[in-house]
Structure formats: C-alpha cells, structure tokens
Design a protein around this nucleic acid. Structure first.
Length: 260
DNA sequence: ATGGCTGCAGGATGCAGA
C-alpha cells in the first residue's frame, strides 16, 4: 500500500497538477494539507472520478486538510483534542480496514509559528504538545497509525540547504526541535530517515529568489509511524518532479510503501 | 534583503505562508 502526503497550497488552484500526480503515482491514500478551501468548495468529484473516497476538514481562505482513499473510509474525525477554542482546520483522522487490520491515517498541518516572538509560536508549541498527547493515547492501542503531513519542523541541520539562514525561524528553533523529538521519542519511526540517510533531501522550496533553481530547500513534510506500522515499512521517497511543473505547490509529495 | 512569490477573499489590497 502506498501512502502519500502533500501540502498542495490551494487544492482548487492546483487541481490539474493534483489529479495528474495522483493518476501517475497511483497512491492508495493521499493526505493533503493547505487545501485553502471550505468543505463545500473542495473539488471532490475530480478525485472521486479517479476512484478515491474523500474526507475533508476544510476552512475558508487558509489551512484545511483532506484525505483521499481508494479503500472505503470507515471513519473520519476532524480536529485535534486539547483546546476547545482552537478553530483552525489542521488535523483529520481517518481509519480504513486492511488485510492486516485497522489502519489509522492522519493528515496534519502543524502551525508555522512565525514570528518566534509572537503568540503564533506559543500556539505552535502548544499544538505540538497536543499532538504528543494524541500519540500517547494511540500508542496504547498498539495498532498501525501514520501521522502524515506538513510538520513545519526542520529536524536537523542537514535537512536544510543553508541551515544558518533558518536560525531565527520558528521551523528550526531549539524548542521546536525538542518538541518534535519528544514526539518521535515516544517510539515513532520517521519513515523517510528510516529508509534514506542521505543529506540534501528536501520537500519544500520557496517561491521567491529562485529557491528551486538553486536547490535552496528544506525538509519539513514527514510521516511518523507507530511501531505496528513501522514493522510494515518497505520504502519511502520524495517525489521532486512536481516542483518543476507548471504552477507548482511550493511543497512536493512524500510517499511511503507499507506491506499491508 | 527590506520575504524578492503565491493563493484567497473579494472586488483593492491585506493576510498568511516558511
């Protein structure tokens, strides 16, 4: 089974390249972030025509996440517990049934957090603690889950082409990295690093200043696997091709293969 | 670089992104 995550940066603006990529890569499940669309404006038919079921947690203007699945979606739950006042659409939990048991897939869009000296950074760190609490609860069930999405975290220096340029950024703060490690250290497996230890692997290149042409990228889109899912991991790849397409998202898809 | 693009809402430009 192939599972993908892709910050699409506006699903309506990107519907042609999104459907073209899905058609070509043929993933079984796709987690989308930054759909920038209300549920009712999401172009579900375009994906349904390709054989996908669709779950949407949308929001007007910005944020918004979705999951496309070739398998029937048994349940879909929007939102991340821990803050009743949080109305930002950044978390969608979907469950499907596989031959090896139930599989939970989350499409998450972790807050950017810039600027660091603002309530946005505090929101990011609080959100990461809520995510850790979610993982603690789920790990107790000892089932397969995949936390897939745009984490807005550069885990280490080798995950940026020019790490020094990110030293004041929320994506690379020591507190950000420590919160990410607290999550991983619960016993999760970061799929890409488990399969590929090379430097220079990026998932985002800014639109500005020729970042793509200069390969001035960062790796911020990740998939964290529960032990039961990690046992079935057979591969992980970053599909850079889409960044060179017409009207690209600034992020590219990350794809894993699970033997389920 | 002083964020140098981009999408969205709305109907001009401001906000958000990373």
């Amino acid at each position: 089974m192939k599972i993908a995550t892709w910050n699409i940066n506006g699903v309506r603006a990107r519907i042609e390249s999104a459907t073209a990529w899905v058609r070509d890569a043929a993933p079984d499940i796709v987690c989308l972030q930054e759909i920038k669309s209300e549920d009712k404006k999401f172009p579900a038919e375009a994906f349904e025509d390709l054989g996908y079921n669709v779950a949407i947690h949308g929001q007007k203007g910005f944020n918004g996440v979705a999951v496309l699945s070739r398998l029937p979606i048994d349940s879909a739950e929007p939102g991340l517990a821990g803050d009743d006042a949080d109305d930002q659409a950044r978390f969608l939990t979907v469950t499907v049934s596989t031959d090896t048991g139930a599989l939970t897939v989350v499409s998450l869009y972790l807050p950017n957090g810039n600027p660091v000296a603002s309530d946005k950074f505090a929101y990011k760190l609080a959100w990461m603690e809520r995510l850790r609490a979610w993982a603690v609860d789920r790990l107790a069930e000892e089932e397969m889950f995949v936390l897939a999405g745009d984490y807005n975290v550069i885990p280490g220096a080798r995950d940026a082409r020019f790490p020094e340029r990110w030293s004041d950024d929320a994506l690379a703060q020591p507190e950000t990295r420590a919160a990410y490690r607290r999550l991983v250290h619960l016993g999760l497996t970061e799929a890409y690093r488990a399969c590929d230890d090379n430097d220079g692997a990026f998932t985002f290149w800014d639109y500005q200043a020729g970042a793509w042409q200069k390969n001035n990228g960062i790796r911020i889109d990740h998939m964290l696997l529960s032990p039961q899912a990690a046992d079935r991991l057979v591969g992980a790849d970053i599909d850079k091709r889409t960044r060179g397409w017409e009207k690209p998202s600034d992020h590219v898809p990350v794809v894993i293969e699970l033997d389920v």
